[in-house]
Amino acid sequence: METYLEAEGLTKYFDGVAAVEDVSFVIRRKEIFGLLGPNGAGKTTTIRMLSTVLAPDVGDVCVGGHSVIREGDEVRKRIGICPQELALYPELSAVDNLVFFGRMAGLSGREARARARTVLASVGLESRGNEVVKKYSGGMQRRVNIGIALMNRPELLFLDEPTVGIDPQSRNHIFETVLSLRAEGTTVLYTTHYMEEADRLCDRIGVMDRGRIVAVDTPTELKRQVGDPDQTTLEEVFLHLTGRSLRD
């Protein structure tokens, strides 16, 4: 499969301490790539560098053939970000949120409204799009959060823990949305703390610990490193790779 994103030697220091160090991996076009790691492993910092929000101190990332350092604008046209925080405006309706972010991304008012209707349908909120977001359940708010990232029809979608604290129905709907996006040709980088989620969704998984990538492979091959893939869970692999000591 064709490589869509290639990270090469990514390193980022905060106050002299390396939050991410020499991280290299590739994401292939139309795959769902899982990025797993304990708290403080450097996942979010890595995503921020991949998505042009944070400049790496060392290394570079190529997205769709464009460097995040030298061609940031070209990269930004191709990506959508769904941060783990609810990065939206609770006082506005879902439609207003989607239209606002769409217009800021360059769509005209008419285009943004039309796209908002499509996106609302894809995240299962078409019937309640005009209600203010603060009246939504946590799961509905998460779906709006994802919907905003879809407004500019991204080729690469970053989903940073999109299912935190929501009910199984909403989680399942998000899974279906992600799978349908892949079917439509979208490449997805997905981070989560839920191992069964990664096992179910991801084509390949990268495991991070202490700012470094410690393993990259398919879920089955990762399990094989620990034991029988049919008997081993991804959580066992995760603990094997990152240890059992508690993290801050």
Partner: peptide, 14 residues
């Protein structure tokens, strides 16, 4: 800034 809305805007090219 805290809920990363500003960051999100910048990642869309604003």
């Amino acid at each position: 800034r805290q809920n990363r809305t500003l960051e999100r805007l910048m990642s869309t090219g604003v």
